[in-house]
Amino acid sequence: MNVFRLLGDLSHLIAVIILLQKIWHTRSCAGISGKSQVLFALVYTARYLDLVSTYVSLYNTFMKVIFLISSYATIYFIYMKFRATYDRNHDTFRIEFLILPSVLLALLINHQFSFLEVLWTFSIYLESVAILPQLFMVSKTGEAESITSHYLFALGSYRGLYIFNWIYRYWSEQHYDIIAIVAGVVQTVLYCDFFYLYVTKVLKGKKLQLPA
């Protein structure tokens, strides 16, 4: 464990707390893409199946359980409890175009052709594009509530900080996982446009307006 990975995981934890807090307190999931949340639930389910077979550490287990519970809780809020506030018309990204290529790529490019390893690889590839429906929705509505943009900033920072973790681990332990690194870079690059707007607008108290 190193400080970059710890900060990355905390950033991820903060993101899910911000999201749940926003939905619970405003009793609304306006502006939130249910499709991205479905993809995240798929990602964490496929990646954290090893909860039953491998024990890494208490921290590892605790965080996996938190991310699994929070992703399903968010889906419950969006599609059931607060479904009246779900903006279905603006959440139209075809997620099958993200899932199928991730499945195919995981079957073709992986470290080991075993059930858990292919699922892990699938989750890594899918996570790198899972935010697209959300970013697409924000660009369609042309704006995002500031709380939603804080959520996106924390979520984007999580994998961005992991890149520093991978650099550190390569330099200090000669450990690297090329699949996680490439996917993590792709994932972070997808946020760059948003990061720019967040820093130049939201931090100055303006509303986040994406060019539609």
């Binding site: 990646r47 090893d50 996996k64 080991q112 090329i178």
Partner: peptide
């Protein structure tokens, strides 16, 4: 590439 015996990252 490094074959991961188990993935220790989240």
């Amino acid at each position: 590439p490094q074959v991961e015996e188990s993935h220790d990252e989240l």
